[in-house]
Design a protein around this nucleic acid. Sequence first.
DNA 1: ATCGTGTATCGTCGATTAGCGATGATGTTG
DNA 2: CAACATCATCGCTAATCGACGATACACGAT
Lengths: 110, 110
Amino acid sequence: MSEVLLDREAAQRYASWFRALADPTRVQIAELLARRREPMSVGQIVAAVGTAQSTVSHHLKILAEVRFVLVEPDGNANLYRINENCLTCFPTAADVVMGRPVAAPGEVPC
Amino acid sequence: MSEVLLDREAAQRYASWFRALADPTRVQIAELLARRREPMSVGQIVAAVGTAQSTVSHHLKILAEVRFVLVEPDGNANLYRINENCLTCFPTAADVVMGRPVAAPGEVPC
DNA sequence: ATCGTGTATCGTCGATTAGCGATGATGTTG
DNA sequence: CAACATCATCGCTAATCGACGATACACGAT
């Protein structure tokens, strides 16, 4: 019984989410995609954040690996958009780490 | 004038918070301290997480640098406790990055 | 087929990180 | 005083990271 600690598996999942946002450029990209809910091309994001194209592509890959953003090929340009599930499920993770009891214990929507 | 992007300063502050929780051991420590709202000694935390004492001390330093946890010397043992401000202010950061409009624009409690 | 555009990937650099044992600093207790 | 307990700090290693330019790939248009 006495589970004094968050189980390692959940801790690792949450840590991977936080690590995906552990860089200011990725925070800007995520916030940009989250506010503008429509898909954006890499070129648009590059123009917005002002770092090199290869670097932005790298950051988008990291954000996509944890499924914060979703990729959708559109002809030549690839489009990235925020994963709507994360809009609620990521702040919930922050709540859990801060000791807030999670409302529905059955879920893992992401 | 159309600020399409979260300003770099805020992005860096949020990224530093997320980076502090970008490790599963630190997630466990933070969640442990957040649930048990009372101060804990390093030895107690070491016993709970099961990694080396020097490693736990290192993680606590990282958590203290962003003021997620507060230090309080108590005789021989040093006591660590969660920063109560972060209980609300960190989930709020997660909301902001996920595009939620921040309620009170006057802020920065941490 | 050839060009041009838009992205992803590669290779590399310097910097940072998690982890550990060993050592050092500081305060408590006999 | 001397022994002890508690914790921080010091190397050290292996791994990861952010950033960039250069290159490769995929596709629409000519």
